[in-house]
Amino acid sequence: MPIERAARALIKSESGYDDWDALGFELQEEVRANICAVLEALRDPSPAMLAAGEKFLRQQVGLGFEGGALEHAWHLMLDALLASRTNPTRH
């Protein structure tokens, strides 16, 4: 799952090696919660993020979006990711 991958990457970047499995469950949960806090902070995309997504969709797929639809899609994707933490069957 992406949250677990991010948590493992954070631990590896801090320690220099992958010692995730050696951490206790409570510490793993704390790191996962920290990742979720970061994702919550990223929930509102910047204008540059929206412009990049719109440019890609226009050029590669031929789609354009009006009225905040791209931002809404971003919110839905992050909400689904965050919900996967409480409902592990969702990816």
Rank of each mutant, 00 (worst) to 15 (best):
L76Q: 15
E4K: 10
F25V: 13
E29Q: 14
E71I: 01
G68C: 03
D21R: 12
I3K: 02
L81G: 07
M1S: 15
W20R: 01
A80D: 11
L23H: 02
A37S: 13
G24H: 02
P45E: 00
Y17W: 15
L63T: 06
E71P: 01
G68D: 04
A69Q: 06
G68Y: 06
G16R: 02
M49R: 11
P2A: 13
A51N: 11
I11G: 04
G53D: 00
E66I: 08
V31G: 00
R58T: 04
N87V: 15
D18W: 05
E54C: 04
H91L: 14
Y17Q: 13
K55M: 13
D44L: 12
F65R: 00
A51E: 09
L27N: 11
G67C: 05
D19Y: 13
P88S: 09
A69L: 09
T89V: 13
Q28C: 07
I35S: 00
W74P: 00
D18F: 03
L39G: 01
G53V: 00
L76M: 15
G68F: 03
D44F: 10
A48T: 08
R43G: 08
A80N: 12
L76H: 12
R5P: 05
G24C: 03
L76R: 12
S13N: 11
A41S: 13
R58V: 10
